[in-house]
Nucleic acid binder design. Structure first.
Lengths: 208, 208
DNA sequence: CTCCTTAGATAGTTCTACTCTCCAATATTG
DNA sequence: CAATATTGGAGAGTAGAACTATCTAAGGAG
């Protein structure tokens, strides 16, 4: 397909698609002459992924590029998700305090989880704990434990379902799927939590 | 305290604080003359809340203002959280499809939850489901149920802890606390999920 | 042969969130 | 009381992100 069709299939303007090409977010099509290039389904899929990452996950294009680069380089689900996670943190200005890092370590140990020291997600979690402290509403260790405990079955099911999807070797589409699933399911999780909060709190309020 | 102290206490520049005043995010201090106004702890707290909402929750200032307005108007935890949630959705361009709305309704019913039809969070969830469909990785009803089920104990504990904080009537600080807690705990939840994913997936990979 | 589309490059626009500069009116300090 | 500093208030300016528009030369379609 040509540029015009690619643009309409992805719901973007030609100018925007060109912009993504320039920015290296979308690989160029196969040139069939000096003024023509052919695009295929992978390009459509890539564009949809880009928009999902920006619109839903709220990533900036710079982060999207890093995630995409990470996907290219990864050769396992674990690598791909790790690469994506590495780029997802909201570029922390302040480094986490040793105290909150220690709390994160404790939680990891309690769950039997291991993470390389200095791992970005550990730092991101520690930073989040610091922010809650700063604002005057620290989170308790008990709550942290509860979070980890409750998320366990969710994550096991998520990981299992991805591994069911693939047959033997990981192909590009699967790695992409892993990242999409991981990132785009986050809003689902948060939405359900919000809905649950409103219900639980209303029930308590009514009960009074 | 005067402007200079307010700025340094909140870690912002005088110019930025003035900007927030102009934008109506921060109520003006009590004027003690034509060129002087006194600020207090509520102003410091408000500034910290604003920064937490922008930096951590990633809200734009326009959304922050709406959340703050919602807090002002609310007279219960339930109202305040509802008001905050209303403004949190990533302004969806496309309305959700009837199909996904129906799936959300089913999930609500299965959980015994009630939400007014057309409630923003229901729409946001439906929209998230649509996006996953569009990208070619729909989420199963089973997974939805699992999410809701796993989040139950978390939410019950969260709501309970807020209600323990207050004594009788809700005061401003408590309502603020509810919103802070709800919004700023989201990154904690997501971070733990990411950490868990990496661990679970690595264990599976190693097991192979 | 004529008109349309495209690749590729450059420049311009819009939006957000500040940041800077002024000014006149005070406060503060010596 | 005089010199200096600070403030409130308002407007203009800036930087970055994400487009959007325009232009040119080269093909391609009918």
């Amino acid at each position: 397909m040509w540029m015009a069709e690619l643009a309409s299939r992805s719901g973007l303007s030609v100018a925007t698609v060109k912009y993504y090409l320039r920015e290296g977010l979308l690989p160029s099509g196969t040139a069939t002459g000096a003024t023509r290039a052919a695009y295929d389904e992978t390009h459509v899929r890539r564009l949809r992924l880009i928009r999902a990452l920006t619109d839903v996950a709220g990533l900036r294009l710079e982060s999207v590029r890093q995630v995409l680069d990470g996907i290219e380089a990864a050769d396992s689900w674990h690598d791909a998700v790790g690469a994506a996670h590495t780029r997802l943190g909201t570029a922390e200005s302040t480094p986490p305090t040793p105290g909150s890092l220690a709390r994160v370590d404790d939680m990891l140990e309690a769950q039997g989880w291991q993470l390389a020291p200095g791992h970005p997600q550990a730092a991101a979690l520690a930073h989040a704990l610091d922010v809650l402290d700063d604002v005057g509403h620290p989170i308790s260790d008990e709550m942290l434990f509860l979070y980890a405990h409750a998320l366990r079955p969710i994550v096991m099911r998520e990981v299992a379902s991805v591994h069911l999807d693939e047959r033997g070797e990981l192909i590009d589409a699967d790695v992409e799927a892993a990242v999409i699933g991981t990132v785009l399911q986050e809003p689902v999780l948060l939405s359900i939590r919000r809905i649950a909060q409103e219900n639980v709190s209303r029930k308590l309020t009514e009960g009074t």
